[in-house]
Computed example of a mutant assay.
Amino acid sequence: MESTRRAAPSPAFAPAPTPSVAHRTVDGYLMATFPWYGLDDAYTGPRWLMQVGTAADGTVEHGSTGHGEQPSLRLEADPHEQRFAVVVTVASRPQRKSADGTGTLEATSVSSAAWLAGSGLLSCTWPTHMDRALRQDWLDQQTALAWDLADHLGADGWSSLTLPVDGVPTSFHYRDSAYGWVLAGSGDDGVHIGAYGRGLSAYGLGFSVIADLAAYDRPRPAADA
């Protein structure tokens, strides 16, 4: 059986859109048949759209919204000084056929949200002691580890964290690392919620359905890759 992890498009960090492509980004979010989540109104900082992930038939499967400072991959940037949180919304999907009709894809789950959040954090992380030429090998290795961790949410390294989702206390799986934190849980609207960040404490966050995407339609300068 083909794993949802490997079938889903990569959530690799993408800079917020420039004005010339902002409308196309918004269109992708508007095509979704599920609600999008972001940080609740207790967060008053900048908000920005990232990207959506689609299935082979164009169906929107997941997407991310950013909060705070846009992560930078500049070698001279200190990742520990960056303050951001990204919320990943994953549609709840049952087991379904693969695009070519020859196999099936696993249903999406909290593990799907955990993997998307974990790999998203890695993709906006730069080990400052590492040569640029070696980063892809490091990223591939760490992404494989993120797959395994997401498949074992009850194992050591994960703890439980209760945060409000639309005002309702909700249990999340939480993991902290040298590069930031990752968490994953489920909402009540047929979605799974993942999040990752750095510099902003996960313990003080809350999530809610985004009522107006225009609040996120604020193009920001692209980060250096």
Rank of each mutant, 00 (worst) to 15 (best):
D137G: 13
S98V: 12
Y179W: 14
D176T: 15
M50K: 00
D148E: 12
T125P: 04
G194R: 06
A146L: 02
V52R: 03
P19I: 04
R135A: 03
G185K: 09
V168M: 01
V21F: 03
Y174G: 03
A22E: 10
D78S: 12
Q142T: 02
S208A: 15
P71T: 00
Y29V: 03
I193N: 04
Q141S: 15
Q70S: 02
D189F: 10
L134G: 04
Q70K: 00
L49I: 06
G187R: 06
W138A: 10
V209G: 08
L200D: 08
Y37A: 03
P11Y: 04
Y43Q: 01
I193F: 07
C124S: 15
T104Y: 15
R132T: 13
P9C: 03
M130P: 00
A8W: 09
S208Q: 15
P221F: 03
A202S: 05
V87S: 01
Y203D: 14
T170E: 04
A22D: 07
D212Y: 08
L49A: 06
A113K: 03
R93A: 08
S160F: 03
A202Y: 02
G190R: 11
A114L: 09
T108A: 11
G63R: 10
P94K: 12
W48E: 00
A99H: 13
A155V: 05
R175I: 02
V110E: 15
S171K: 13
Y37Q: 02
S201R: 12
P219D: 02
Y174A: 05
L116H: 09
S123F: 02
W181S: 09
L39P: 03
A99D: 11
E69V: 13
S186M: 14
Y29H: 04
H129Y: 11
S159K: 15
D140N: 15
Y216N: 02
A117F: 03
T18K: 09
W36S: 09
G206Y: 00
Q82W: 04
A85L: 05
P15K: 04
A117H: 00
W158H: 10
M1S: 13
A12Y: 13
G66V: 00
E61A: 01
T44G: 02
M31H: 13
P46Q: 00
H173A: 15
W126Q: 06
D156A: 13
G197Q: 09
T4I: 11
K97Y: 14
L205W: 09
T25M: 10
A7D: 11
A85N: 02
Y179V: 15
L121W: 01
S111H: 04
D212R: 03
V168S: 05
K97D: 10
T128D: 00
G157N: 08
